[in-house]
């Protein structure tokens, strides 16, 4: 009699365990069915590929050797769900032989650096980072030089390229 009872108990327990296991698996499936797609959906921007595009800025004659100019321009870019005319700012610096294009985003935390012509340097208003007139970091927290964009001069026009 005692043996029969214990057998029934063990059957009951294994049945409970089995049902509990099935409930657990179903619940895991339910969680996975929403979390999986959710992760893919939310991280979609990570898979967007960007490419370099050229844009004409101005006549070559409008900047003299040794001069640094702040230039605004715009490009059509895809911003999420729509295409817009996105405005940007860059600094052009003309040397004796070449023109370089310096992005004003401070390499520390992205504030826009300001050019101080008398000191021939760029200064970040946020945390006091200082760069020379070619964008090399000189003092303060910025860890690396300002980013440069490729430049080409064609038919007297200055073009730059940026990743969008």
């Amino acid at each position: 009699m005692t043996n029969d009872l214990s057998t029934n108990d063990s059957i009951e327990i294994s049945r409970r365990k089995m049902m509990g296991l099935v409930v657990g698996v179903i619940n895991l499936g339910l969680i996975g069915s929403i979390v999986g797609p959710m992760v893919g959906f939310a991280t979609a921007p990570l898979t967007v590929k960007r490419k370099q595009r050229w844009v004409e800025l101005m006549d070559e004659s409008m900047i003299q050797p040794g001069e640094v100019k702040e230039v605004n321009y715009s490009m059509r870019v895809v911003d999420g769900y729509h295409e817009i005319e996105q405005k940007y700012t860059v600094y052009l610096r003309r040397g004796e032989e070449d023109v370089i294009c310096i992005d004003p985003a401070c390499t520390h935390l992205g504030c826009r650096v300001k050019f101080q012509s008398e000191q021939h340097r760029f200064v970040c208003p946020c945390h006091g980072g200082v760069f020379d007139d070619q964008g090399n970091n000189k003092s303060g927290p910025p860890p690396k030089p300002l980013e440069r964009h490729p430049v080409k001069i064609e038919a007297g026009k200055i073009w730059i390229s940026r990743e969008v």
Partner: peptide, 21 residues
């Protein structure tokens, strides 16, 4: 910002709608 120092550099904004290529 030293406005007087940067003014000469900020006056020039020639390309509002640059050609896109």
């Amino acid at each position: 910002h030293k406005a007087t120092q940067v003014a000469e550099n900020t006056q020039f904004h020639p390309v509002e709608t640059a050609a896109l290529t």
